[in-house]
Each structure stands twice: as C-alpha cells, then as structure tokens.
Simulated assay, not measured.
Amino acid sequence: MNNNQMLTELLNEVDLLFEDFFTWLAGQHDVESGGFYYAKSSVSNERFKPDIESTAQALNILIRNDLLKEMPVQMQNKMIHFFQFKQNQQTGYFYDENEDMKKDEVMVHRAISYSVGALRKLGNNPLYPLLFRANAAPSYVKSPEAYVKKWDSIDMSNSWRGCDLLANTCFYMLDMPETDREPYITKAIQYLEQIQDPSTGLWGEGSLYVKISGTFKLHTFYNKLNIPMPRTDKIYESILHCLRSEDAVDMCYIRNPINLLSYMKLNIPNNELKEIIEISIKNIKRLKRKDGAFSRELEHSPSAPNVAQIKQGEYYPKMPPPVHLSQGLIEGDMNASTQATLIRLQLYQLCQLNAARLNQQLSFYSYIS
C-alpha cells in the first residue's frame, strides 16, 4: 500500500464519524428565530435560546460542506435577521439575552467577530455602524507603550485564557490606519518574542495542551496581521510530544494542534503525519455521541462553554461568570461539532487531498423542512 492509499483509508475512517451528523445539526435549528441551539438539551428546555456562537458555528459547518448556496431564501433571511436583531444600536456590540455574556470580554469580542462574519457570509451587513471601537476603545490603545503595559497586566498562569485576552486586543490594531498601526505591531512582535519560551515555542503556563491552546489563540494575532509566527519548529516538536504523551479530554485539545499545524504549513514526514492522524481519530472517537454529534468534554457536554477550558487542578485567572447554554448532559454540542468538521477538513489539507462529500449533507435541508 502506498502512502496516499494509507492516508486515504485513515481519512475514510474520519468520514464515517459523520454518518448521522447532519440530522443532529438540522434538529438544532429554530425555524422561528433563524438561529441554532447549542445542544439537544437546549432545544427541550425553555431556559435556553438559540445563541450567537452556536448559530455562527452552524453556518460555518454549512459553508465547510458547500451547503450555503443551497440554503432556502427564507432560512437565509431569518438567519440574517437573527444576527441583526442581536446588535445594540448605541454601541454596535452584539449580545445574547444572557446578561452574564457582557461580563466576559472574550465572549463579547467573539460575538462581534461571529456576527459580522456571519452577516458578511450571508451577503448582508450589520444594521448599525460599527462605531464601538472608535468610541469605546480602551485607554491602552492610546500608545504602543500603554498597549504593552496592558499586556503585562494579563495573567498568563493559564496560557489558554491569557493568550485569548492578548489576541483579542488585536481588534483595535486592525481598526487603525496602516501607518498608525506600524509602531503598535513592532511593539507587539517584540513583546511576544520576549515572553515566548525558546525551548518549546509556547507561551504562558499550564499543561502542554493548555499551552498549545494558548499558542493556537495567539496564532490568530499573527494570522490577521500577516506576521510570521516565530519558532514554528519548536512549536511542532511540542505538538508532537503533547499528542504522544497527554490525554485529550476536550475537543479543543484535538482541534487546536491540528489548526496550528495547518496554519504553519510545515513539511511533516509521512510517518509522523500518519501518527498525528491516527491519534486524532482515536481522540475524536472518544467524543462522538449517540445523538450523532460531538461533545466538548469526555464526561459530558459543558453547559457553559465559556468556562469549559477550566480543568481539574488547573489555575484559571479571573474566571468569568458561566454563560449556560444547555443542561450539560452526555450529548453533542455545537462548539465541539463545528471543531470536528474543521479537524476533518484540515486533516485532508495536511494530506494534500480534497475532502470527500459526506453522505448526508445533500439531504440536510430536507431534514429541517
């Protein structure tokens, strides 16, 4: 068996994990609002509503499976209205009904990115001007030195959370005119290289998976500003060591290393690529649920995904209030499921092969009619 045949067989094994996935996805759709629920237990409980992240993640799944162009016009219009209705006219921010969402800086920034991005993909725009960054930009944006002082104040004891906060400050740099942005970018590059561990290529503290997840969060900073990530050879060594030695108890622990490998575009030896795929398949299978979808965590689907990254024995600085989206049962959830679909595509990409069409995807819209 040649190398391509071997890799194709492994990828076929990944595809089999999605046999009953699209019926689950269809069941998460709320026809009235146009949004999607986080999990099955969200649909059956009046406490929970379709939310911004789950709806944007469902849209991403449809796009990754080439289903957007087949979306019925009525469903598309409902989804556009769903995101537009979430926007605050005064600030331009997008909020779900849960008031605790506003207290988590990361969730607030994610809601902006998700909502604006989803509307763009649907061929539309926010209802109101996005004046929030110009009018409500924090004081640390006033100078590169203030920016660095802000970064110095971020607790990196948990790399995942710390790097997430670091990367989110990138929003304000992107809003600056290009000439004004340059000194900020220069300071940012210097700062990040200064705090990067030269032996591992990772940032911050925590378990290997936590540090790799933090590094994954920071790659968004480099990617958005088109800056090469430093020490990618060391990052690769850390990823390989982590996959071989650590227990992936969270779908993010499977997705984040694969996402980093895809971003770094390294020449991975065939034997190591095969090993990476085999480990990923083994880990994904543990998170596949009977309802057809995938769960964030081994024991159950976390009811509040904004604090799901806290693991037993790990320190989590300034924990935000939990934003509950489900009952937290042993079930699939949208957060993990959108990651699973991305992992599948990126495994194909690492193998330099085109992803095959999944059996059920062509019937998806018939499931929700």
Rank of each mutant, 00 (worst) to 15 (best):
N2D: 15
T8V: 11
E9M: 08
L11E: 11
L17F: 05
F18C: 04
G35F: 10
A39D: 07
S41P: 13
V43S: 10
P50T: 10
D51P: 07
T55N: 02
Q57I: 07
L62W: 03
I63N: 04
I63C: 01
R64Y: 07
D66V: 07
L67Q: 13
L67C: 06
P72T: 02
V73Y: 03
Q74K: 03
Q76K: 14
H81F: 04
F83H: 10
N88A: 05
T91F: 12
F94S: 12
F94I: 05
Y95L: 13
Y95V: 01
D96K: 04
M101T: 12
D104I: 04
E105I: 14
H109I: 06
A118H: 10
R120V: 01
R120C: 08
K121N: 13
N124F: 12
L127V: 00
L130V: 02
L130Q: 15
S139I: 08
K142F: 08
S143C: 05
E145S: 14
K150N: 14
D155A: 05
D155G: 09
S157P: 04
D164Q: 13
L166I: 11
A167L: 02
C170S: 09
L174M: 15
T179D: 10
E182N: 06
P183D: 14
I185M: 10
T186R: 08
A188M: 15
I189L: 12
Q190I: 02
Q190T: 11
E193P: 05
E205Y: 15
S207K: 08
L208D: 09
Y209S: 07
Y209F: 15
K217S: 00
H219A: 03
K224E: 07
M229Y: 09
R231E: 05
R231S: 11
I239L: 00
L240T: 08
C242K: 00
L243G: 07
R244T: 01
S245A: 06
S245D: 12
D250P: 00
N256H: 06
N256C: 03
N259A: 08
L260S: 02
P269Y: 04
N270V: 13
E272I: 03
L273S: 00
L273G: 03
I277G: 01
I281R: 10
K282R: 14
K282F: 13
L287C: 12
K288E: 10
K288I: 00
R289W: 04
K290F: 08
K290D: 09
F294Q: 01
E299Y: 07
A308T: 06
I310G: 09
K311T: 01
Q312Y: 15
Y315L: 00
M319I: 06
P322Q: 11
V323R: 00
S326D: 11
G328M: 08
M334N: 03
T338K: 15
T338G: 02
L347P: 09
L347K: 09
C351Q: 06
L353E: 04
A355G: 14
L362Q: 15
L362D: 03
